[in-house]
Design a protein around this nucleic acid. Sequence first.
DNA 1: TTTTATAATTGATCCATATCATTTGAATAT
DNA 2: ATATTCAAATGATATGGATCAATTATAAAA
Lengths: 231, 231
Amino acid sequence: MINIHQNGNCLECDKKCSAFKRLLSEELNYINQYRFHITYKKGEVIFKQNTPASNVISISRGVAKTTFEDKFNKNLILSLIKGPSLVVGPGIYVDNIYHFTLTALTEVHACIIDVLAFKKLIRENSDFAEQYISEMSVRAIRNYQRTFCLTHKQMHGRVADALLNLSQNIFNAPEFEMPLTRQELGEYTGLTKESVSRILTKFRDDQLIQMDGNIIEILNMDKMITISENG
Amino acid sequence: MINIHQNGNCLECDKKCSAFKRLLSEELNYINQYRFHITYKKGEVIFKQNTPASNVISISRGVAKTTFEDKFNKNLILSLIKGPSLVVGPGIYVDNIYHFTLTALTEVHACIIDVLAFKKLIRENSDFAEQYISEMSVRAIRNYQRTFCLTHKQMHGRVADALLNLSQNIFNAPEFEMPLTRQELGEYTGLTKESVSRILTKFRDDQLIQMDGNIIEILNMDKMITISENG
DNA sequence: TTTTATAATTGATCCATATCATTTGAATAT
DNA sequence: ATATTCAAATGATATGGATCAATTATAAAA
């Protein structure tokens, strides 16, 4: 974990997440005092479930995952996140605890922001608050679809959903380097790693995808969407 | 559906949900102009998924469910809600569409509030906004646990969870009248009605619960919690 | 290079849960 | 009281995925 105070300040930052674009210059200068910039290596934990939630994270670059784990160390990947994006643990308005773990899947550039500074801006700038509410709302809606997917679709549909999400929401391209292991794909789709492996082999045999090492390309996007929709 | 403009106004209302308790008198008088009170009968739809989200609902009394349905009419019960509680479709900050259906499970007394009036208060009263954010946050946290439950626990654990939620969060008593059919319990737990039926019979045979018609009593709360925790 | 550890693949088997089919029960209407 | 409808219970069977086990790749370390 390399701590580099970025030269510039928030005012000039061109990797601001949407909410921060709603802030006034003076507010950006204010928040600039309460943040520091860190680069995480692949695999590093940014914050850990069940620890005190003292920061919000503005990811400027890279891909990360949020995971929920129980006492038996069974994991569930809640979401995949691509910078620029603001990651706020909901616990900051509930019990001041992180309710999931945030982990870098690639190198991640992020600003660690003091939670009190964040909350102050939420109270003082209603544009900012509204944008934050809007982002929470988008996630809530995604959650409905995701819960539905995990409970009502079977293997093929779930893996298709995962691949489509990676392609469309994270990498914006049909071809990408898979940032998740088979184990993690399992934790994301609610399957075992063996099942994920089998489905991917099946997809490849059916000419739906191409796999070259860790590079995956969706060859037939329409078919993939159909599989996702039909569960 | 009986439309009765309640005699009193919001200022005097003793069934306010938490967020409204944060409003000033003048704000309560303001919102009072943009709401009307309705009583729904059991089974009636309060608002329907995919229709324009023009209101937020303040449930003062009764129990309701939110359901998410796909194009094949497969349903998932997202949550159970007990008054007093504010139900806001997240779509009001995204695409002005309801993303789930809200249905009365018992007789429900509710105030239908204009969404623009609600949004105005969110912008103008940061206590109100903060309380709303806090409630969204609680739901987000519950969602993690629920998604985990539905993907990682098996039948007994899921049904135990459902019964515990009804007992602890909805009725605040070990004995209650089951507001859900077996089919609905299935839609809530991600199981078929047949499986739910079998599990309940098993629970009764094991002296975990008592069933008298539609009345269910949890006889062994500790055991039920253990089953929930061990999946 | 060889060793070691970790991830991925693949096959064989088992089991949890869905599906299908029938019966029973309860509520509502005739 | 009888018919009708819908919810619930229960048994028999099928199957989607998990689990277990073995093999092969891949990558890091000695």
